[in-house]
Amino acid sequence: MLEDQLLIWQLKGGDTDAFCQVYRRYRTDLLRLAALLLHDRVEAEDIVHDVFVSLAKSAEGLTLRKSLKGYLLTCVANAARNRNRASQRRRAAGLDEAATVPSPARTPEQWVTYSEQLERWSGALAQLPYEQREAVVMHLRGGVKFGQIARLQGVSVNTAKGRYRYALEKLRSVLNSELES
């Protein structure tokens, strides 16, 4: 926490080395979270990049109440939720086919390689409703408490816990059926 505060002070002072340090320290954690939440490599890399761009632009006015990692994870979770909503709207409007047509801007640059386990968990999580997925990923991999998950999702703590339990049950059935097949 103290180290984070020092980094923030250096960021506010315009220290580019401090920015690189923040980037190198947290980029893989953020990419992992985004990949688990979205199960889309390009989208995950996009939102992590966007979060760092936002940090670069707004570091001057940043005030940190918790850890820097917690702050960045929350930013990624919010961005992932927004992307998910946007893709749901596109799907509802029948624009999903158009959205999946590869365009030069969306060409993955393959600078990130996910492990087999990450791909597997990400695939299993993709079968859950987004809110349940978010609850289980944020709690188990982000170390976020249910109270904060509830605030992020705008629901009560009990609802967040319920979503977590449903997510685990669904994951269990998905992974067990994978084992059987």
Binding site: T16, R32, V112
Partner: peptide, 23 residues
């Protein structure tokens, strides 16, 4: 779970530099 991520060092360096410039 060991959810490893590997990044391309050269590309990663470029991204970090661009972001630092933007900062």
């Amino acid at each position: 779970a060991d959810l490893d991520i590997e990044v391309d060092v050269k590309r990663d360096y470029e991204i970090a530099r661009d972001l630092a410039d933007l900062h």
